[in-house]
């Protein structure tokens, strides 16, 4: 596959600036990482509507709550490890519980952070966010989708968590691929097995589908960009029509996208299933590709999981 590799963060910055031009109620907060998260783009365009809170994520989230309670649409950004775990209580008490109009767009999620190591590689943010009532959880697949997600959620009034990465990712959607929150995208049709991916693992799933096709296996590939609310209809339909499901995510397999899908299928339509993701361990420093190999996030891992599922189907 020859995809263009692009930065999700860059598109986040672009979308924010556009929103800032379109609407005066948009305000943006960051915690001393604005040049990395790209909220700096908004800060230079609209300095009076940008508030750097310093290295104080808890303070940032509660400040966001006060702004949202006063009618602002607030985007708050930092690295995912600090924007979820570090300020979990603030998100729970002051964002999710009062259902305030705050969008936490967190970058540098997962092990593809690379060299910074386990301290910065959050692999549990989806778990933390999806268990909160009132919170929606989105993992844009690429730069185009990041742009569309940001423009879309700005029109909702509720809390949303958006997870993006540090590294450039393969661009698997077009600029005009429709995006609907809570409606999974079928990237490729097939009837033998379903591969469900989110984030960077959707492109790996597409590669795996190509590989499986060489062996006469027709895989359906779903981009599950919205982890919550979960598109149960598309997931159950795929399980029913293909009889087996593999999920792939750059997140701990404990409580991320794969477990959301598993819970849905156990209750609705039981099929053989396998979750590809980071096992129950912390990451470490390394290059992106090395880390993805070591922690089981390759195309080959997905292919292997698909064969296992196919075996159990029979």
């Amino acid at each position: 596959m020859t995809w263009k590799w692009e930065s999700q963060r860059k598109q986040y910055g672009r979308a924010l600036v556009e929103l800032g031009k379109e609407r005066s109620d948009i305000v943006v907060l960051d915690a001393d990482l604005s040049s990395s998260t790209r909220t700096a783009d908004f800060a230079s365009a609209f300095p009076e509507r940008f508030f750097n809170c310093g290295i104080a994520e808890q303070n940032m989230i509660d400040t966001a709550a006060g702004l949202a309670a006063s009618g602002k649409t607030v985007f708050a950004s930092t690295f995912a490890v600090f924007g979820t775990g570090r300020c979990y209580d603030q998100i729970r008490q002051s964002v999710a519980y009062p259902k305030l109009n705050i969008k936490i767009v967190a970058s540098h999620a997962g092990i593809t952070v690379g060299g910074d190591g386990a301290s910065h590689q959050i692999i549990e943010d989806l778990a933390l966010m999806r268990v909160l009532p009132n919170m929606s959880v989105i993992v844009p697949v690429d730069s185009n989708e990041t742009y569309r997600v940001v423009k879309t959620i700005a029109n909702t009034k509720d809390p949303v968590y958006v997870r993006i990465g540090r590294a450039d990712v393969p661009t698997v959607t077009d600029e005009d691929t429709p995006y609907e929150m809570g409606k999974a995208t079928i990237m490729r049709d097939g009837d033998d097995v379903t591969l469900i991916g989110c984030g960077i693992m959707t492109s790996k799933s597409l590669e795996a589908a190509d590989e499986l096709a060489k062996h006469g296996i027709d895989a359906r590939v779903i981009n599950l960009h919205t982890i919550k609310p979960l598109d149960e209809k598309t997931i159950v339909k795929a399980a029913r029509e293909t009889g087996g499901v593999v999920t792939a995510e750059e997140h701990s397999v404990m409580m991320g996208m794969g477990s959301a899908v598993a819970m849905c299928l156990v209750e609705n339509f039981h099929v053989p299933m396998k979750r590809v993701g980071i096992p129950d361990v912390f990451g470490e420093s390394g290059a992106c590709t090395e880390l993805m190999e070591r922690y089981g996030l390759t195309m080959e891992n997905i292919v292997e999981a698909a064969h296992d599922v196919l075996k159990r189907k029979k």
Partner: peptide, 25 residues
């Protein structure tokens, strides 16, 4: 009630957000 509270230490930051909004508007 202007802000949901109970977990301690949140209110001043939330008040700051309101104060920033007032200044902006």
């Amino acid at each position: 009630v202007e802000m949901s509270t109970g977990s301690l230490g949140h209110g001043l930051a939330a008040g700051n957000g309101m104060a920033l909004a007032a200044k902006l508007d």
